[in-house]
């Protein structure tokens, strides 16, 4: 049987991990061994955010991950995240797969958006 390692205090109360995987903890190793070449080290993959898995706030996530998250939001709501912090100001513009829906006549908006995009070039 696999024995669950202790969760850090930040984990959700009541979170069940005992039943989880069939993975087996063999023993504690004292040597760090080698690093995986393709795995980014702390601070390498992004300007600011640490990449260790201990990042406990959303703002600690690298831009590429935040963009991925915003990609699941409708465009309108992604834009609203601009006001969270300066770092978020332009995130939505590069979010992957922004969901754009059109339920009203956007002809006026699209013209102004084009102007906006032109100005920003």
């Amino acid at each position: 049987m696999w024995v669950a390692p202790p969760l850090r205090p930040a984990a959700a109360p009541g979170e069940v991990i005992a039943k989880r995987s069939e993975a087996t903890i063999i023993s504690a190793s004292s040597s760090a061994c080698y690093l995986i070449d393709r795995m980014p080290h702390q601070g390498q993959s992004d300007k600011k955010a640490p990449v260790a898995s201990g990042s406990h706030t959303i703002d600690a996530l690298p831009v590429i991950v935040l963009e991925h998250i915003l990609g699941f939001l409708p465009a309108q709501e992604a834009v609203q995240t601009s006001v969270l912090a300066r770092r978020w100001r332009h995130l939505w513009k590069s979010a992957t797969g922004l969901h754009v829906s059109c339920i009203v006549d956007l002809s006026g908006y699209s013209a102004s958006l084009k102007q906006q995009a032109f100005k920003e070039r």
Binding site: A10, A11, A12, P13, E15, V51, A52, S53, G54, S55, H56, T57, I58, A60, L61, V65, I69
Partner: peptide
């Protein structure tokens, strides 16, 4: 918990 979500996505 949110903090676990962020650790997971990282």
């Amino acid at each position: 918990d949110q903090s676990v979500l962020y650790s997971l996505i990282m």
